[in-house]
């Protein structure tokens, strides 16, 4: 079977979809705020936190909420580059509440940051907030997170019950070592008489040799393949 399709390589810039859903007052506020940020980057420090009550916080599309998309618009308006951009973004994240931190993490692929924002991704991955972990594992992490950390992040998702189809880049980054780690995890669960999350099995199946002589594990995989028909 094919590996589950992870999210596309990069969610498109949410700005057009956002403009379509905002009412006149919110759109005007966002346009003016983006212009202020472009003229004076320090303005982002008081405008970024105010977004939820100015623009709302409903669902926008599969990737973005309205407030995350509006906050992304303020970040992409920053007239900064390189380390200066990374520092301003990191401080917004440092002083941000969870919603602001999610917005920063989701916006990373829209910003020209190279590897400079990896500390923000790592902080989310160290924590217990599944919404932040999920936001951290978007196209930016898929492109920049080193292999060993990426594999650990996927395993953490399995432990936190974050469905793997919400993790970007698995279709290209899942490798034999990740398959081995997931197979060992599944085996541990089977021996303990506990359920195995079904969404990890295709990644194990892609590298059949990692199953080794473990009959119970082979059995679980065969069951899944039967169900898939």
């Amino acid at each position: 079977m094919a590996l589950p399709t992870a999210s596309p390589a990069a969610p498109p810039d949410p700005h057009p979809a956002l403009i379509a859903v905002l009412d006149d007052t919110a759109r005007t506020w966002l346009d003016e705020s983006a212009a202020q940020v472009a003229a004076d980057p320090v303005a982002v420090r008081r405008l970024f936190p105010a977004v939820r009550r100015k623009c709302g916080h409903g669902h926008l599309d599969a990737h973005w909420s309205v407030d995350e998309a509006a906050r992304a618009a303020l970040l992409t308006a920053l007239p900064l580059r390189g380390q200066a951009l990374a520092d301003e973004v990191a401080r917004l994240h440092r002083h941000g509440d969870p919603a602001e931190q999610r917005a920063v993490l989701r916006a990373l692929p829209l910003l020209d940051l190279g590897d400079l924002a990896l500390p923000l991704v790592r902080e989310a991955l160290r924590g217990n907030d599944t919404t932040l972990i999920e936001a951290a594992l978007g196209p930016y992490a898929a492109a920049h997170l080193p292999d060993a950390e990426y594999r650990q992040a996927v395993l953490k998702c399995v432990f936190c019950e974050i469905p793997l189809d919400r993790v970007t880049g698995l279709n290209t980054r899942a490798d034999r070592e990740l398959a081995r780690m997931l197979a060992d995890f599944a085996h541990e669960r089977i021996v303990a008489g506990r359920a195995v999350p079904q969404d990890i099995l295709p990644f194990v199946q892609a590298f059949p040799d990692v199953v080794g002589g473990r009959a119970e594990l082979q059995h679980a995989l065969t069951d899944v393949l039967k169900e898939e028909g």
């Binding site: 420090r45 936190p49 105010a50 002083h95 509440d97």
Partner: peptide, 10 residues
Amino acid sequence: DELDRYLAKD
């Protein structure tokens, strides 16, 4: 110098 950030919160 950082109060601006916090005074803007909901």
